[in-house]
Nucleic acid binder design. Structure first.
Lengths: 100, 100
DNA sequence: TCAAATTACGGTCGACGTAAGGATC
DNA sequence: GATCCTTACGTCGACCGTAATTTGA
């Protein structure tokens, strides 16, 4: 279960279509369907019901969607906070010495 | 920033030594030092001060450590909940038809 | 027949491990 | 000299994209 996998899953769940989700993520369908299958396989549950009209979220998928959003939100918050102190003072960058 | 990267970071932060953290993670030092460097580069901050005795957590590292633990804890919780309904009823597995 | 998901296949990028190289006490 | 962390280098696995296949309205 990777962060990218969760982003993919959320996109599919929210769009309801693999095709539209792929477009939103700027990738093609194959990596997306594979990622979802792999996620289901890893967790051991079916997350979607595949119909000819799109992807329908199952109960297990709904529960995961909630958590996935929490995780992604926390990750995003962590990214933002990392570069700034709690006081808002920016931290110094770890520049590599170039020449001199 | 990947989940594995956060696991690596937490191990180094808690052990205080790259060597010991690598041993705990069952990997060698090179991937570990690279992962930490990459994380610092991605975030744009120094997380550790490298001394001849080990890795010393900087303020930015301490803040990240807190968040990283939260994320990993939430991920673990998500993994556990994924296979069970809130009521505790196990969900059916999406078994691939093998033969029969 | 059309639209949607899936599988096949080839290429590329990332991550690991072994080995060698500083740096500090 | 011992103990860290780091860089070099080669290999292997993961992910993506294009193309072809399958399934259902």
């Amino acid at each position: 279960m990777s962060i990218a996998q969760l982003e993919y899953f959320v996109a599919v769940a929210e769009e309801g279509h693999l095709t539209r989700a792929a477009s939103r993520l700027h990738i093609s369908q194959p990596p997306l369907t594979r990622a979802v299958h792999r996620l289901e396989s890893e967790l051991g549950v079916s997350l979607f019901e595949r119909t000819s009209r799109g992807m329908l979220l199952l109960p297990a998928g709904e529960r995961l969607l909630t958590r996935a959003k929490e995780i992604l939100s926390l990750v995003e918050r962590t990214r933002r906070e990392a570069t700034r102190t709690p006081d808002g003072k920016p931290t110094h960058l770890p520049e590599r010495p170039s020449s001199s």
